[in-house]
Computed example of a mutant assay.
Amino acid sequence: MSNSLKPESHPFVVPNFGSKEYTSFFLAGALCCTLSHGAMTPIDVVKTRIQVDPAFKGHGFVSGTRNLIANEGASALLTGFGPTAVGYLAQGGAKFAGYEFWKKRFVQIAGDQETAVKYRTAIYLGASSIAEFFADILLTPLEATRIRLVSQRGYATGLTTGFARLAREGGVRELYAGFLPILCKQIPYAIGQFTVNEFCHETVNRAMSEDTKRTLSNTSKFGISLSCGIIAGFAAAILSQPADTLLSQINKGHGPTGSMPHRLYVLGKEAGFRGLFAGLGPRMIMTAGLVSSQFLMYDAFKTALGAPRGIEIHKAI
């Protein structure tokens, strides 16, 4: 085919996001994540206990919740709320703002719309992975504190005392003992969250005519966003579940000594396939609620803050 017959490549009109826009992205991401994760604390407490506490072995979510309330009181369901809220305030802001930044950067590297669309999967994977890596630097110490509070009854009275005790007894090394497993957990989680959500929206958009898109009611838009978020949440939970189980074990002090890869290998071998996916049911429920609510709130907060839409590189047909 001659060059004159080749389809013309069209450069993206890439928005010029500055500090104001990224501050809005950060604030919207921080608020949506701290609110959603904070609200899910009771489910996360039960999930973590099922993973690490022998007394909860064989329990499902409902029976585990009943057992926890009967033995420790209803207040036990809010154990770790402080580090959860603060940790995901920082992590959520960095993750959502980072995803917007790296997606824009990779689109610029692609150079034109056709190339960006062709490699959109790689762009989604790369943007979500890099954003999550830096966000986890902020999250890891607070996640370690949360898991200690949940898994060791009486460890501390809350965020400040728990963080101080962990830092005093183990130092930076202990605070970041779970960094590798948390990367193994959170990067697949972010990939499922952002990539699957992008493709779900693309699938829906491609199935609708332009007239239908223009006349969609707010209720329909809400339903589409909610459904896409739920599916993305299921994907995020399944992809990250094995590492989530190992992270809980590491932060409770289980497993052999030695390098982190060695400890992860031994713990994974001991747990087996079934053990690595213990607590998946309640975690899927939790994650579907987390991811779907985060996307809905993120869009609402961006609108309230006057932030622009992110870059869309969906395939049109």
Score class of each variant (00 low, 15 high):
residue 142 L to E: 02
residue 129 S to G: 07
residue 119 Y to R: 12
residue 126 G to T: 11
residue 120 R to K: 14
residue 141 P to W: 15
residue 186 Q to R: 12
residue 156 A to D: 11
residue 120 R to D: 06
residue 133 F to W: 13
residue 124 Y to E: 14
residue 187 I to R: 04
residue 195 T to V: 12
residue 140 T to Q: 11
residue 165 R to I: 10
residue 151 S to R: 06
residue 112 D to N: 15
residue 186 Q to K: 11
residue 195 T to R: 07
residue 170 G to D: 03
residue 131 A to H: 12
residue 147 I to P: 00
residue 161 T to N: 09
residue 123 I to H: 08
residue 125 L to S: 04
residue 181 P to C: 07
residue 124 Y to P: 00
residue 113 Q to C: 02
residue 142 L to N: 01
residue 156 A to C: 12
residue 112 D to F: 09
residue 113 Q to S: 10
residue 146 R to T: 12
residue 163 F to G: 02
residue 152 Q to M: 13
residue 122 A to V: 14
residue 95 K to M: 14
residue 135 A to S: 14
residue 103 K to R: 15
residue 121 T to L: 14
residue 172 V to C: 04
residue 170 G to C: 02
residue 108 Q to G: 07
residue 193 Q to S: 11
residue 183 L to Y: 08
residue 111 G to F: 03
residue 184 C to V: 06
residue 180 L to T: 04
residue 105 R to C: 02
residue 162 G to C: 10
residue 137 I to M: 12
residue 169 E to R: 10
residue 96 F to T: 03
residue 178 G to P: 05
residue 114 E to K: 14
residue 150 V to L: 09
residue 110 A to V: 10
residue 102 W to D: 02
residue 169 E to W: 05
residue 155 Y to T: 04
residue 156 A to P: 08
residue 122 A to E: 11
residue 98 G to K: 14
residue 165 R to H: 05
residue 116 A to W: 03
residue 190 A to G: 07
residue 187 I to T: 08
residue 142 L to Q: 04
residue 166 L to V: 10
residue 121 T to E: 00
residue 149 L to Y: 07
residue 100 E to C: 12
residue 165 R to F: 03
residue 183 L to W: 09
residue 95 K to Q: 12
residue 139 L to E: 10
residue 123 I to A: 08
residue 146 R to V: 10
residue 191 I to H: 06
residue 115 T to S: 14
residue 129 S to F: 15
residue 138 L to G: 01
residue 143 E to S: 08
residue 174 E to H: 06
residue 164 A to D: 10
residue 132 E to S: 13
residue 166 L to H: 05
residue 98 G to S: 09
residue 114 E to C: 08
residue 134 F to S: 01
residue 101 F to V: 03
residue 153 R to C: 04
residue 110 A to K: 12
residue 143 E to F: 03
residue 119 Y to H: 14
residue 185 K to H: 15
residue 167 A to N: 08
residue 195 T to I: 03
residue 147 I to C: 02
residue 94 A to F: 15
residue 98 G to C: 10
residue 195 T to C: 11
residue 163 F to E: 02
residue 115 T to G: 01
residue 186 Q to S: 15
residue 94 A to N: 04
residue 112 D to Q: 08
residue 109 I to K: 07
residue 190 A to N: 10
residue 189 Y to E: 09
residue 192 G to M: 10
residue 152 Q to S: 11
residue 96 F to D: 01
residue 118 K to R: 15
residue 107 V to K: 03
residue 165 R to Q: 13
residue 123 I to T: 06
residue 116 A to G: 12
residue 197 N to E: 08
residue 97 A to E: 03
residue 162 G to R: 04
residue 180 L to R: 04
residue 101 F to S: 00
residue 107 V to T: 13
residue 154 G to H: 12
residue 97 A to Y: 04
residue 157 T to N: 13
residue 176 Y to I: 03
residue 126 G to R: 11
residue 198 E to H: 15
residue 142 L to S: 01
residue 133 F to E: 00
residue 171 G to W: 07
residue 112 D to V: 08
residue 122 A to N: 09
residue 176 Y to A: 02
residue 164 A to W: 01
residue 175 L to P: 01
residue 165 R to G: 05
residue 198 E to K: 12
residue 144 A to W: 02
residue 148 R to K: 14
residue 181 P to M: 09
residue 102 W to M: 14
residue 97 A to H: 04
residue 168 R to G: 06
